[in-house]
Amino acid sequence: MDGTQNALLVPSTTDTPLLQVTGLTRLYGARIGCADVSFDLWPGEVLGIVGESGSGKSTLLSCLAGHQRPDAGQILFDGTDVLALSEADRRRLLRGDWAYVHQNPRDGLRMGVSAGGNVGERLMGVGGRHYGRIRDTATDWLGRVEIAAERIDDRPSAFSGGMQQRLQIARNLVTGPRLVFMDEPTGGLDVSVQARLLDLLRGLVREMGLSVIIVTHDLAVVRLLADRLMVMKSGHVVEAGLTDQVLDDPQHAYTQLLVSSVLQV
């Protein structure tokens, strides 16, 4: 449960965690969204959050990403208290150092704007005012997510689901964020497309040294991507540790159920 123990096992570039979360609680009236969640996330680390539907993992992610305000707890990003930030600073963080990949690419993309415009938006949002350079960067990023350069002026509505998801990832990573939130990034994609997307994500995460918090109910996804894992049930973190350790030797009854429920092909 204590992130600091596991942190010793994770390669880190600095002495302080990138994100420190303590006692995060979000209530929906009398019902619990998530309760008393604490963890540290180190630079370059990928943290997976798994659990069944309604276990509070999406609530936790939206609290972390600033989409909802938690009722209690503290979130420190790089030593800064995120919850105490002004609206302007918080949104600047969301545009620059943070990125959020939605489950449904339609939530994260502008469907009426071309692929190049989608990728360029964050660049223009942080002050890019040179068309040629914005376009070059967008072309480069489309290449990195395996979208052909000649599709740069096509709208996302002309893209397949997998391409839309890859475009959303390019759009989010173009400004070189340090922390990426992902909500079921492979949800709704067929398995071969999922595999390619996971390959791509794994490559980008390693290459850019990203810290990632990834929420999913798919254990295969966290097995591939995550260094560390948190298992949630009824709003509480019931088990946490290194991914392989949790999946291969689950301690909590619920984790054992979860691991044994995966269909073997």
Binding site: R95, G117, G120, E121, M124, V126, G128, Y131
Partner: peptide
């Protein structure tokens, strides 16, 4: 936050 305004101009040039 006026980056979006330039997205419109970007789309103009792209098209």
């Amino acid at each position: 936050e006026y980056g979006l305004m330039h997205v419109k101009l970007y789309e103009d040039i792209a098209r």
